[in-house]
Design a protein around this nucleic acid. Structure first.
Length: 798
DNA sequence: CGGGACAACTTTTTT
DNA sequence: AGTTGTCCCG
């Protein structure tokens, strides 16, 4: 009984898409190729469940990859069926599981308002752990240790499990110790890290079956987007949650699985049919996004992969423009080329035409040159990724103040802001304060309040109590409810002295201070917006924001500032630049990873070189190249009308000049789809067909020769020439080792003995490959030294 | 205690 | 190369 209004939900869908919307019961795998109208299908499906089948929104759990994708989905569903859709659980794995944890976390021993630690917090905790265990940072950096633990967590390996499978060797035991101590430390601080949000929820389900049962009963329809990027823990969560209803719909594309490094396993999607033998499989193979040319190129790139589900995308669109490949002389030339091309497109487009241009790269470090080139031409751009807004120092300062006001026992926040801006409370004072706090069993904040009672703190007591007073005053302001939330944030920024501090820096000519002030201003705008959302949206949506019953009660009855603050802080942790709305008239600069799920009329892919894209380290990993290839596939399929791929003969990166041959992925694209420009013919050779006038050519060559030769000595240039020839003649080691040191890193391993001119005999502790070089950590009889292999005066000790 | 100078680190991708 | 962190001196 399909009414007219409801049939709208099936309008403009092809037959497979329709089937995907209508197959609501039982396990369903939707293999959705790039640009195949996936989001449309998902939103229609949810709308269909609610409107047509009368499923209560709260019974629907839809998991997306980013908060932005979630918001977009909510909006689109609301556009379809209006307010009826309110109350469904749509969000990322992290935000959805966090909601569950907030509700039941006490069962795991967490106090009600546990905090989520971000990378910086984690690093601090880990640094302490390593110090405690007397492990030198030289041997294992906090960063590496955290990466290791994250790996375990993504693979659903607890400290206990790790121990049980440990070999008993020292190195294994040490890993267990680190993992244990880290978890213990987090727990004592009543904190979880990002991965814990998922692993602890899983633990909750396993140890408290009634909780799982509650959730199973609530969520009778589960939908997971980007299923190819789920990891073992996420798979397990989904499996448990859907075990009862079995109405599990997963949507994904194995060809776009690009998060292997984060523990995502492509097996989840490849094995879905084995895991759920009675499942329905639907393939969406018609592409509505790109031209035939772009799609053909994408297919050529991906078909080289072996482990994939066979599918062939097709489009009804025309051939479109050929793919432009540009081989630049160097990284600067490449950047200028892109900037010029971007400028030309902006100039040519008429006012009403919507131009969406993106430049994609494999790693953030590549954006820098491009930024300069764009600025030279006065082109506006937005960068995604890199340092996130909420990760910026000044923003983190403000949020630390806010955290401290909210929970005075938050030691990390206390330590962050106690002397930021400077108020004469240094390391010595802090150490004494910690000691005093330890003796009395006080929090640092309370200890500061009572600093006068400790003779050791006498000199700093005045400054400490002043700080305490400031925080107390701010808390009073919070509780008095006389301010709007944004006003409160502003008050914190001013009273803390941060604003004055940066204003002074700016006055003194600090170049960064200005943008920091702008960021502080932006945080206030953010607060205004956040507050407005709370004011205008229904109670259902507040329900959506938090499942802490007490807090919800607070918000419903008096909409307290305290409650708003807590929601705000919670969101700040999970918020990333990915979630920001994209503004159109500018060029977007982002990594290929960030571009997932987006589309642009014109796409540039820069740095298409061996060693960059595919990345250096992917050569080592077992399925590394396959993942890189999928990444290339994602990059190519972002383009609707036009694709430009560039590479550079020489590239200065991380202080070393590299000479990389063009990426194998660009070689996979057949000649008939491509138009080549730049120095493909050979060194310093151009066929002149690049559309530049001869004077531009003069400039072009001068720039190129300057940048290639200027900074280097003649001897080096000779060496470069030799290297370049070796590389372009396709001997596949693009990075011959320098011979000066007489040290062949490939023959070395930890434990080997080496001789240094000044330090004498030492033992190699660790070797870290760094592209064209390696870092050696060597123990000279207790003195730990680090060397760059190519530069060091080391020899193998016979 | 604060600011400046130097050293060390980055080198994939991120919820 | 560029940025961040640490050490030392005023």
């Amino acid at each position: 009984m399909t009414s007219f209004e409801d049939s709208v939900l099936l309008k403009n869908l092809n037959s497979e898409q329709k089937r995907a919307v209508l197959t609501t019961e039982g396990p369903l795998l939707i293999l959705a190729g790039a640009g195949s109208g996936k989001t449309r299908v998902i939103t229609r499906r949810v709308a269909w469940l609610i409107r047509q089948l009368g499923v209560h929104p709260a019974r629907i759990l839809a998991i997306t990859f980013t908060n932005k994708a979630a918001n977009e989905m909510k909006e689109r569903i609301e556009r379809l069926i209006g307010l009826e859709s309110r109350g469904s659980w749509i969000g990322t794995f992290h935000s959805m599981m966090l909601r569950i944890l907030r509700r039941y976390g006490s069962l795991l021993g967490y106090r009600s308002s546990f905090t989520i630690f971000d990378t910086t917090d984690q690093r601090r905790v880990m640094a302490d752990v390593l110090k405690e265990l007397k492990i030198s940072e030289r041997i294992l950096s906090p960063r590496e240790a955290l990466a290791m633990i994250s790996r375990y967590k993504n693979d659903d390996v607890s400290p206990e499990e790790l121990e049980s499978r440990s070999s008993g060797y020292y190195i294994d035991r040490q890993r267990v110790d680190i993992y244990r101590a880290y978890q213990k430390s987090l727990f004592e601080k009543n904190a979880l890290d990002f991965d814990d949000i998922l692993t602890q929820t899983l633990r909750l389900f396993r140890e408290h079956p009634h909780v799982l049962e509650n959730c199973q009963q609530q969520f009778t329809y589960i939908l997971v987007d980007e299923y190819q990027d789920t990891n073992v823990v996420q798979y397990e969560l989904i499996r448990l949650l859907s075990a009862k209803s079995r109405n599990l719909c997963v949507v994904g594309d194995d060809d776009q699985s690009i998060y292997g490094f984060r523990g995502a396993t492509i097996r989840n999607i490849l094995d879905f049919e084995d895991d759920f033998p009675d499942c329905t499989v639907i393939r969406l193979e018609q592409n509505y996004r790109s031209t035939k040319t772009i799609l053909a190129a994408a297919n050529q790139v991906i078909q080289e992969n072996r482990s994939r589900k066979k599918k062939t995308l097709w489009t009804a669109h025309g051939e479109g423009e050929p793919i432009l490949m540009y081989r630049a002389a160097d990284h600067i030339d490449e950047a200028r080329f892109i900037a010029r091309e971007v400028q030309r497109r902006f100039q040519l487009a008429d006012d009403h035409e919507e131009i969406e241009i993106a430049v994609l790269y494999r790693m953030n470090a590549l954006s820098r040159n491009l930024e300069f080139a764009l600025r030279e031409l006065g082109i506006e751009y937005i960068i995604y990724g890199g340092t996130r807004f909420y990760d910026r120092a000044e923003i983190k300062d403000v949020t630390a103040y806010l955290s401290l006001i909210q929970s005075p026992e938050d030691e990390i926040a206390f330590r962050r802001v106690i002397n930021q801006p400077r108020r004469g409370i240094g390391a010595v004072t802090l150490e004494r304060l910690a000691e005093f706090a330890g003796q009395r069993g006080l929090t640092l904040f309370e200890a500061a309040r009572r600093a006068g009672e400790d003779p050791d703190l006498a000199r700093a007591a005045g400054r400490l109590t002043l700080f305490v007073k400031m925080i107390d005053t701010l808390r009073d302001a919070l509780l008095s409810e006389e301010l709007s939330f944004a006003e409160f944030v502003r008050m914190v920024e001013v009273d803390s002295g941060l604003i004055a501090y940066y204003q002074e820096l700016k006055a003194r000519g600090d170049v960064e201070a200005g943008s920091r002030l702008e960021n502080l201003e932006e945080l206030i705008s953010d607060a205004i917006e956040f507050e407005a959302r709370l004011d205008t949206e229904s109670l259902d949506d507040i329900w959506e924001l938090s499942h802490d019953d007490e807090l919800r009660e607070e918000l419903i009855t008096d909409r307290s500032l305290k409650g708003v603050l807590r929601l705000f802080l919670e969101r700040a942790v999970l918020y990333t630049d990915q979630d920001k709305e994209r503004e159109t008239p500018k060029v977007s600069l982002m990594t290929v990873h960030s571009a997932k799920g987006l589309e642009f009329s014109t796409v540039f892919i820069m740095g298409a070189e061996e060693g960059i894209f595919p990345s250096m380290q992917s050569f080592q990993e077992p399925d590394g190249i396959e993942e890189e290839r999928r990444l290339a596939y994602v990059a190519v399929t972002r383009a609707k009308r036009e694709l430009i791929i560039s590479s550079a003969v020489s590239r200065l990166l991380f202080g070393h000049t590299q000479y990389n041959p063009p990426s194998r992925f660009s070689d996979d694209i057949s000649e008939d789809l491509v138009e080549k420009r730049g120095v493909y013919g050979g060194y310093l050779d151009s066929d002149g067909s690049d559309g530049m006038s001869s004077s531009e050519h003069g400039e072009f060559f001068r720039d190129m020769v300057n940048s290639v030769l200027k900074k280097r000595h003649a001897v080096e240039a000779q060496e470069d020439e030799r290297v370049y020839k070796a590389v372009t003649s396709r001997q596949m080691d693009p990075l011959p080792k320098k011979e000066s040191s007489g040290l062949d890193v490939s023959e070395l391993k930890p434990g080997d003995t080496v001789r240094h001119v000044t330090f004498g005999i030492g033992e190699i502790q660790k070797i870290t490959e760094t592209g064209d070089d390696a870092i050696l950590v060597i123990d000279f009889d207790g003195r730990i030294k680090r060397f760059m292999a190519s530069q060091s005066a080391l020899s193998i000790d016979e």
